[in-house]
């Protein structure tokens, strides 16, 4: 019985927070009208998130491409169809792996740091101080971060796709002796502009999810250093889950 009560309470809190997050999203959208005014800070955030993420995204992308080249290459060899390798690696990356893996890895890196930063500002009264100075903290802190997230993820996804294809080609050439031209031809044959566009739509949605969850969790942080740790963890876990759920939903809607 007692377990039921705590469970009910947790479900109620969860629903409450989901509703809060939605309201937070509407507030943020409302303040998007100041996007032009906040351009300097937004560009700084884009630079920080984008350039800062390049090393880890590069490693992730090249190894993902290589493992696909390895696995798919072995199978294709059995059917004498290695000229399809570029197409298979390209389509998988553009449709699915590019946006999702980039979303997850950037959420782990950038989302976590955004939540920790904003959470620390919350508990050290910096956000209260902004409000007391009649400066809207959503405009000053959330708008640049959310817009930057929405812009950065698609850009990094394109970068992942290209780098991943390169990884696939390296393995294709080294292990299967595939030449560049057939590899490219395979890409052209299998990867449609629609695949690329859909992948970018996905990553835009993932960017919105990451920015929203990271900022919301930061702004609702309470209870000192432990609170910052808890909200950072929650931010990453919730972003991961929402990205995977949104991936299914968006795929369903687009195809």
């Amino acid at each position: 019985m007692e377990e039921n009560i705590t469970l009910n309470k947790r479900i109620a809190t969860g629903i409450g927070r989901a509703g809060d997050m939605l309201i937070f999203l509407f507030h943020a959208f409302y303040w998007f009208k100041t996007a032009f005014r906040m351009r300097k800070e937004t560009i700084a955030q884009i630079y920080r998130m984008g350039v800062g993420s390049l090393p880890v995204v590069s490693l992730m992308a090249i190894f993902t491409g290589m493992v696909m080249g390895l696995q798919a290459g072995q199978e294709l060899l059995k059917f004498q169809a290695t000229q399809w390798l570029g197409g298979i690696v390209g389509a998988t990356l553009a449709r699915e792996l590019g946006p999702v893996l980039t979303g997850l890895i950037v959420a782990g890196r950038v989302g976590a740091s955004m939540t920790a930063e904003l959470g620390t500002m919350k508990i050290s009264e910096e956000i209260d101080a902004l409000r007391a100075m009649a400066i809207n903290p959503i405009r000053l802190l959330v708008v640049p971060r959310m817009i930057a997230s929405i812009i950065v993820l698609p850009l990094l996804t394109i970068y992942t796709n290209v780098t991943g294809l390169l990884g696939g080609f390296i393995i294709g050439k080294a292990q299967l002796g595939i030449k560049l031209f057939p590899y490219m031809e395979g890409i052209a044959k299998f990867v449609s502009p629609k695949d690329i566009a859909n992948g970018l739509i996905k990553s835009t949605v993932f960017g919105l999810i990451m920015g929203l969850v990271a900022c919301y969790e930061g702004f609702t942080t309470e209870g000192g250093a432990r609170g910052v740790g808890e909200s950072t963890t929650r931010s990453v876990v919730i972003t991961f889950l929402l990205i995977l759920i949104a991936d299914y939903v968006v795929t369903h809607l687009l195809y």
Partner: peptide
């Protein structure tokens, strides 16, 4: 109104 916060609350 000006407010002086206990922790100063300067933006880091």
């Amino acid at each position: 109104i000006g407010v002086v916060f206990q922790s100063s609350a300067l933006l880091n």
